[in-house]
């Protein structure tokens, strides 16, 4: 285990990763069964990124997320029950069933929303960082984005603004191999993404995004720099997604063997387990019992959500304005 990380933080990281894995696996099954309305984009394979980043954040810190946002929401502390209700567009959902998979948010937890516009997170996270800087709170914000978003102008504008105003923001680029159905080798013109960030004048690192400890160590450094007034950092975290761009994506653009290799060699949960058991810090029994607790929790939450009523028709017209 990393010397800088205590056992409780590591276990928290594992709990986040396992919760994401269980949640997404169940949602995939439900989607296939036809119970989930709309589009859904799953995060399996990238769990170590959300966990490694968010173990260094409190509710006072902000994150802005992506269309593939369930993992970030779980890692930032959104409650599973209301999240499940939201996925099924039910009453009591975290957004009253009006946001759905791509807009899950809990501002009270510093989760400024999954975001269905690619590149949407970067300027919002700059805004949260601007609040922290203006009010002198030492809070930080994180903009999660994919490799596809890394080509958006909003991201370039935001990175430059963050450097110019020295904003306490961390740009977390999750390079998951594909921007929708197009490989990163095609759609990113430079040799990598983080070198572009470096060109804007900020520290930037490329990290193995399947290794919780590697992500966590990089984030610890980036967050400390930001909290101390040192400005932004970019972390390019490489972790391929296991599922399609959306559920139901036939994935004709990648070899079937790729998924087998990912499951065998790049499973963030297996990598975590092997690292901690080699270090002897956490017992297998401890992790197994955490697994069982999480599996039950997800199962219960989804069962409740499946049975829950739809939002009341009157909800159509509420929450457009604070006043009008």
């Amino acid at each position: 285990m990393s010397a800088s990380l205590d056992k409780n933080t590591a276990l928290r990281g594992y709990e986040i990763m396992k919760t994401i894995r269980e949640f997404e696996t169940r949602i995939a099954a439900e989607y296939a069964a036809g119970t989930v309305p709309g589009m859904t984009h799953l995060y399996i394979g990238q769990e170590a990124v959300a966990a490694g980043i968010c173990v260094h954040l409190s509710n006072a810190d902000s994150t802005a997320s992506t269309h593939r946002g369930h993992g970030h929401c779980i890692a930032k502390g959104c409650e599973i029950g209301p999240m499940a209700l939201e996925l099924f567009r039910k009453e009591g959902g975290i957004c009253k069933g009006k946001g759905g998979s791509m807009h899950i948010a809990d501002v009270s937890k510093g989760m400024l929303g999954a975001n269905a516009i690619v590149g949407g997170s970067a300027p919002l996270a700059c805004g949260a960082a601007l609040t922290a800087k203006t009010l002198g709170t030492q809070n930080v914000s994180v903009a999660f984005m994919g490799d596809g978003a890394a080509n958006q102008g909003t991201v370039f504008e935001s990175m430059n603004l963050a450097v110019v105003l020295k904003l306490p923001v961390i740009f977390v680029v999750e390079n998951n191999g594909y921007g929708e159905h197009t490989g990163v080798d095609y759609h990113v013109g430079s040799k990598d993404i983080c070198s572009r960030s470096a060109a804007f004048g900020m520290p930037a690192k490329k990290i193995d995004g399947t290794d919780f400890f590697a992500v966590s160590a990089a984030m610890a450094e980036a967050a400390a720099l930001a909290r101390a007034g040192g400005g932004p950092t970019t972390l390019e975290c490489c972790a391929k997604r296991w599922h399609g761009h959306y559920e139901g994506d036939p994935q004709a653009y990648r070899a079937k063997s790729e998924l087998e290799e990912l499951r065998r060699d790049a499973d963030p949960l297996i990598i975590f387990r092997s690292k901690v058991s080699a270090a002897g810090d956490v017992s297998v029994a401890e992790l197994d019992s955490l697994d069982a607790k999480i599996t039950q929790q997800i199962s219960d939450a989804v069962d409740v959500a499946l049975r829950a009523p739809q939002p009341a028709p009157a909800e159509l017209l509420t929450d457009v304005y604070a006043s009008y």
Partner: peptide, 26 residues
């Protein structure tokens, strides 16, 4: 300069940052 914040010519960053700042208390 902390309350009259000059920016680069980057309208998306300006308005997006304003939205993020509004969500978080400014």
């Amino acid at each position: 300069a902390s309350r009259v914040i000059d920016t680069p010519i980057s309208e998306s960053a300006i308005v997006g940052a304003a939205a993020g700042a509004a969500l978080t208390g400014l």
